[in-house]
Computed example of a mutant assay.
Amino acid sequence: MRRWQLTPKIRLTSVQATLADDLELRGEGDAHLSLVMMCEGAGWFRLNRQAIQHYCADSFWLSCASGRCQGYDFFPRHHFYHLLIVDFSPELLSLVEECGLRVPGDEPKVFSAALTEPLKATMMAIQQGWNEASPLAALHLESLALNALWLALGQLQTQQEARPLPTASRLPSRERKRLIAARDVIRQQASEPLSIEEMARTAGLSLMAFKRGFRAMFGITPWNYVIECRLKLAQNLLEESALPLSDIALRCGFAHASHLTRFFQRQYGQPPGRYRSSCQQVRMAG
Results as ranks from 00 to 15, higher is better:
L245I: 10
C229I: 06
A168T: 12
A200D: 01
P166C: 01
A168C: 15
R178K: 09
W150K: 15
T202C: 08
A162E: 05
P164K: 12
A255Y: 03
I180D: 00
L149M: 11
A152F: 04
S173P: 12
A152C: 10
A209E: 11
E198C: 09
R215K: 03
L179N: 03
F214N: 06
F214G: 11
R230V: 09
N224G: 08
R212H: 11
M208K: 09
S169E: 14
G213T: 01
L243N: 00
S191H: 08
R176Q: 07
T202V: 12
P166L: 07
E175R: 01
F210N: 05
A234L: 14
L165M: 11
N236I: 13
P172T: 03
L237Q: 13
S258W: 10
D184M: 07
T167C: 14
M208L: 03
V185R: 04
F254G: 02
Y225G: 11
M217K: 04
L238P: 02
A182G: 04
L153W: 05
Y225W: 13
T221F: 05
A162N: 07
P172M: 02
S258V: 14
E192P: 02
F254A: 04
T167I: 14
Q155I: 15
V226S: 05
E239Q: 14
A242E: 12
A152R: 01
K177S: 14
A216L: 08
T202H: 13
N236H: 15
I196C: 13
L205F: 06
A162R: 06
H259I: 03
R170P: 15
E228Y: 13
R163I: 15
Q160M: 01
Y225E: 10
K177Q: 14
A234N: 14
C229V: 07
S206D: 08
A257P: 12
L243Y: 06
S195I: 02
L238K: 05
G204W: 08
T167S: 15
L171G: 03
L151W: 01
E239D: 14
S241C: 09
W223I: 11
A209F: 07
Q160F: 06
Q155T: 15
S206E: 09
P222S: 00
Q189K: 02
C252N: 03
L231T: 13
P166H: 08
Q157W: 02
P166V: 12
L194A: 03
E175S: 08
L156Y: 01
A162I: 09
M217W: 00
E175A: 08
L207G: 05
Q155R: 13
A257Y: 06
L165A: 09
E175F: 04
G204H: 10
R212S: 06
R176P: 02
S206G: 15
V185G: 04
R201N: 07
R178W: 05
C229E: 07
R178N: 08
A234C: 14
L233M: 11
Y225P: 10
N236S: 15
L238F: 01
A249G: 12
G213I: 01
L237C: 03
F210V: 02
E192S: 09
N224F: 06
R215G: 04
E228A: 14
A255P: 07
M208W: 00
L156E: 02
E197G: 07
F210Q: 00
A203V: 03
R174W: 13
S241I: 05
A190P: 04
R178V: 02
G204M: 08
S258Y: 10
L250D: 12
F254S: 05
K177G: 12
Q160Y: 01
W223F: 15
P172F: 04
R215F: 01
P166I: 13
